[in-house]
Amino acid sequence: MKNTLALLGGLSPTTFLRDYWHKKPLLIRQAIPGFTPLLSRQELFDLAAREDVESRLIRQNGDDWRMDHGPLAKLPPLREKEWTMLVQGVNLHDDAADALLRQFRFIPDARLDDLMISYASDGGGVGPHFDSYDVFLLQAHGRRRWRISAQQDLSLVDGMPLKILKNFQSEQEFVLEPGDMLYLPPHYAHDGIAVGECMTYSVGFRAPAFQELGEAFLQFMADSIDLPGRYADPELTPTRHPAELPAPLLARVTEEINKMRFTDDDVTIFLGEYLSEPKASVYFDPVDKPLTPARFVQAANKRGIKLSRKTQMLYRGKHVFINGESFAVGRADKTVLSMLADERRLDKSALQHASEDVMEAFHNWYQDGWLELF
């Protein structure tokens, strides 16, 4: 709680969520005093050049914007002005970045997305825009000038590779130094410009569109639909309009389709699998020479275990979800598994309560790279 209070400028998570979350911006000076970049400039550039890392390069020339997607093997000269490199999901590849992201776990994991790092040369930015999700913008190196606005006009410039606001009107302006942080709710217009070379860390949150969820849910439920029987019309009479859909056909099919019902359990299992599913760019590295089950149990009981940085583990009721998979568990196993999901690690004392079935699952996850030994 003490660290969270500092992170939120002395506000408790309860107060922040009540007064600011989804409502209004919050500028927090020295949210993390003395903060320095977790990765050097070169380490960040090396990440951007990898196939398994999502990155973008954005360059501005007056009113013209250009965006290139990674891998970014070659970047503009450092002395060149007005370019920005964005690297998504840095928390998946670096322990310190993952630890920083986890400081925001007063928000449920189901909503927490990733840590993005923006590197910009002098004058660099991505233009005035808005996000559809909440974001915390932590200054890591150098300075960035933020202009923000609560404007309702969110119309965009046509024909741009980026979503640039057409009529941005700044209402407030701040210059952030290393350790300063700005929170912005969804759809709050903002424009950040680098003052000299700078790095900004963005903690973003998942806010899937209901249309996206609805389509995914119907696909998820497709294999579960059970409508036995076949259409028949033994009472059929001659028609004078052969091209017209018969009313009895429509009524009968409507009746059958209306028999489909979705339960709370259906939605819970869908949502748990959907929100724990790794992104397309995420790859796990299986253990080359895994320990045998017996040796693994010995090592785990001695050293403890932890989830991989890339693993997303959630739970609800009797259901446990991990990396897009789900299973139901009994009360005793649920205690151990929910502790692992919440703490993302289990020490040897906690493992004493794990059943053989749970230890077998841990061994499988260890082999797949989802879980690691301390």
Rank of each mutant, 00 (worst) to 15 (best):
N258C: 14
R261Q: 14
D285Y: 04
Y274W: 10
L271V: 02
Y283A: 10
I257K: 06
D265V: 07
R295D: 14
N258F: 13
N258A: 13
P290Q: 06
E273M: 09
F284H: 03
Y283P: 01
D285N: 08
F284A: 02
S281Q: 10
A294H: 11
F296V: 02
Y283K: 09
P286S: 03
V267K: 06
P293N: 05
V287P: 02
V253L: 15
P293D: 08
D265K: 06
L271C: 09
P293Y: 04
I257G: 09
F270Q: 01
L291Q: 04
K259V: 07
S276H: 01
D264A: 12
R295C: 09
S276L: 03
E255M: 11
P286M: 01
I269H: 05
A251L: 13
T268G: 00
F284E: 03
D288T: 09
E277V: 07
E255R: 13
E255L: 13
T254S: 15
D288M: 06
L291S: 03
E256N: 13
S276N: 04
L291W: 04
A280S: 12
L250T: 13
K279E: 10
I257A: 12
R252T: 15
S276T: 10
V282S: 03
T292L: 07
Y283R: 09
A280C: 00
M260C: 14
A251R: 14
D266C: 05
D264N: 01
T268W: 00
T292F: 06
R261P: 07
E256F: 11
P286R: 01
E255P: 04
R252Q: 15
V297P: 02
R295Q: 14
R261H: 10
E273S: 11
A280K: 09
V282H: 01
E255V: 06
M260K: 11
E256G: 11
D266R: 04
R252L: 14
D265R: 06
P290V: 05
E273K: 14
A280L: 13
D266Q: 07
F262Y: 06
T263N: 06
T263P: 05
P290D: 05
Q298R: 11
V282Y: 00
T254H: 14
D265L: 05
R261W: 05
V287W: 07
G272A: 00
S281F: 09
P278K: 08
Y283D: 03
K289P: 00
F296G: 04
S281T: 10
G272L: 02
D288Y: 00
L250G: 13
G272H: 04
V253C: 07
L275T: 01
T254V: 12
D264P: 05
I269Y: 01
L250D: 10
R261T: 13
P293E: 05
L271H: 01
E277T: 15
